[in-house]
Design a protein around this nucleic acid. Sequence first.
DNA 1: ATTCTTGCAAACCATTTGCACAAGG
DNA 2: CCTTGTGCAAATGGTTTGCAAGAAT
Lengths: 154, 154
Amino acid sequence: MTSNETKETIKKIFTDYLEKKGHRKTPERYAILDEIYNINGHFDVEALYILMKRQNYRVSRATIYNTIELLIDCNLVVKHQFGKNMSQFEKAYHCIQHDHLIDIDTGAVIEFCDPRIQEIINTACEINGFIPSYHSLYIYGRKKELPEKRKKFY
Amino acid sequence: MTSNETKETIKKIFTDYLEKKGHRKTPERYAILDEIYNINGHFDVEALYILMKRQNYRVSRATIYNTIELLIDCNLVVKHQFGKNMSQFEKAYHCIQHDHLIDIDTGAVIEFCDPRIQEIINTACEINGFIPSYHSLYIYGRKKELPEKRKKFY
DNA sequence: ATTCTTGCAAACCATTTGCACAAGG
DNA sequence: CCTTGTGCAAATGGTTTGCAAGAAT
């Protein structure tokens, strides 16, 4: 998964960010960063909270929300909203740029890569005088071959 | 804005949809469709509710939520979630395909068009055996020239 | 007549906030 | 020490749900 030296690099990015912003380097913040980088794929705050509780961390939801905001701000985490009223998150460092194809019927999320998205981002930002920070592209669709029966749970 | 014959076309699309799905053709549903198509740009449920109340409609938030779901299902409305915990909506019929550039600092939303997005959608759907229904691309960034002072309200 | 819709208000639940205590600088 | 960060619990607020009354078919 993530090598140890990569973990150190990530930790350093976070440390530099905290120092630059004058935020304190608390063990809770590093613990949350660590746990997030052990997760593959998407997660929500509740899942991370339960995961950490199960490992006997003494942590609160409030701190998780707080820390994730910091991690988003230094681009170590990205936030997704796939149409539900609950945010999903994902580690962002050194991950291959990817976007999401969402099955309208099942809610299943498929990841895909297409470098051409970068050209669109560059053009849009140039025209409007922006510096791009991050993006999200969600394509919603349905499976071509319809299985005989399928549950709609979203 | 929207011509009368276009309004009729939209109404017909909704009628066909309701009939196909076996849903009832209630005046509330048509009123909500109408009001939505009078709005330019994005709106949230609360804004639409207040707008309709001010015009002495007897309507409830619950019905608005219900009806919008139907309108999304027949592609007359699209839903957006620009990072806040409140959904935004937009009419979708015969609108030029456009995406959104969001200012991280101010929350301002700029629309832009780029036909190349369609190629990406087609490729991703072909590879995964999907039929695309709709998509949303949000590019988050910051203004190049930083004004001396700027409020962060998100 | 039957069943779906509506408005209203209460319930829900992800997220935010207030506060007293803990701990980083 | 001073101030920021934390856990906990309560508050918030957009969205959903339950229910009795009303309207579509």
